[in-house]
Computed example of a mutant assay.
Amino acid sequence: MPKTVIAALQIGTSPDGSAATVENILKYEPEILETGCKLTPEGQRRIPQVLEAGGDIPGPEVDSLCKLARRVKTFIVVGVVERGGSTLYCTALFISDQGEVVAKHRKVLPTASERLIWGRGDGSTLPLVKTPAGLAGAAICWENYMPLLRYAMYAKGIQIWCAPTVDERDIWQTSMKHISYEGRTFLVSACQYQPPPTEEMCAALGLPEGKPIIRGGSVIYSPMGEALAGPVYDREALLKAEIDLDDIIRARYDMDVVGHYARPDIFQLVVDEKPKNSMDCQ
């Protein structure tokens, strides 16, 4: 099977807003083009303080990313704050190498204080998307700790697991290694890097000087839980790795958790993929 390249772009979200963040992404266009990346997940996520901080789909920022994908012929998976009516969602967009938004995934359960800001997604946005590098899906941050969601994605046949996050802890690497090994899938986790705050901000908030707000930790794992690139900390970075989907077939020879290593006669999972609305007209 032909080999392709996947990549993770580790940057931070600009305090100047989503337009400035997109500009930062666009600065990496030459590197993306030179790598020939077929899949570029990008881990930017932010907690908006007001509804106006959210973005519309389509919208100017998304349009810029679509143009980037088309110019460099790269399939992009990118985290955004999506505005839907008067509600915000933590969303991963799938943008094809033709520059079209082909799917989205809304985080099904915001984590902790995120629930003060974001609404809940439903089972209608759990897509697997065909990309030039393989079948890709996304689990956002702590969704990766939901065993039933993981199993649902395995059962769909995921080949490239995208895990955008802001979790910089060492235990996150353990989880990513486990998921890639459990699902026998390639895994790309892009984490934000937010540089150290200014001296004035440190003094005002009582923060230690010189320590990044979020240190990163973006990584790419093989279907056997081996690190192919990263993790990278304390700087912006574009990680890349060449992959061969036949490695998934080889890895599942001795364990396929939805195939020969499953017991559907004992255990069953039902996934409701219908969209949930506040009013159901009969």
Rank of each mutant, 00 (worst) to 15 (best):
V80H: 04
W161Y: 14
I160G: 10
R115V: 07
Q268H: 11
K211S: 07
R250M: 02
G210C: 03
A190Y: 00
V129P: 03
M176D: 10
A152K: 09
A237I: 06
P275H: 05
E182I: 07
G259Q: 08
E61D: 13
I160N: 14
A92I: 04
I117F: 00
C162N: 00
S180M: 04
D16E: 15
P275I: 04
M255D: 11
S86A: 08
S96K: 04
T131K: 09
V129R: 04
D122W: 13
E182L: 11
K130C: 00
M1T: 10
F75R: 06
P275L: 10
K276V: 14
Y154E: 05
L51I: 15
E168H: 14
T35C: 10
M224G: 02
Y233T: 04
P2R: 09
V257Q: 12
I249K: 02
C141L: 13
P196M: 11
V77Q: 06
L239G: 15
P195H: 10
M1E: 15
V270I: 09
G225Y: 13
G79T: 11
N24R: 14
K104C: 14
I57M: 12
W161R: 01
S14W: 01
A138I: 08
R250C: 01
F267G: 10
G206M: 02
S278R: 12
A190W: 01
P41M: 06
G85C: 07
A69D: 03
H178R: 15
E236M: 13
V129A: 06
I248L: 03
T185S: 02
Q192M: 14
M146Q: 13
W172S: 03
Y193I: 02
R120D: 06
S189R: 08
C90P: 00
S113C: 02
S96F: 01
K107T: 03
K130L: 01
S124Q: 05
V188C: 05
G216L: 00
L228V: 02
E31F: 08
P231Q: 12
P127T: 02
T13Y: 03
S278N: 08
K67T: 08
V271G: 01
R215C: 02
A69L: 07
L93F: 04
S189V: 07
G84D: 07
I213L: 13
I6P: 10
W142V: 02
A251L: 03
D63Q: 14
P2T: 06
D280P: 00
P275R: 09
V219C: 00
A138V: 15
R46P: 02
Q49H: 12
A152C: 07
K156Y: 04
A155T: 00
L116V: 05
M279N: 03
S278K: 09
I57E: 01
I11M: 11
I6R: 12
R150S: 07
E236I: 08
V232H: 09
E114P: 05
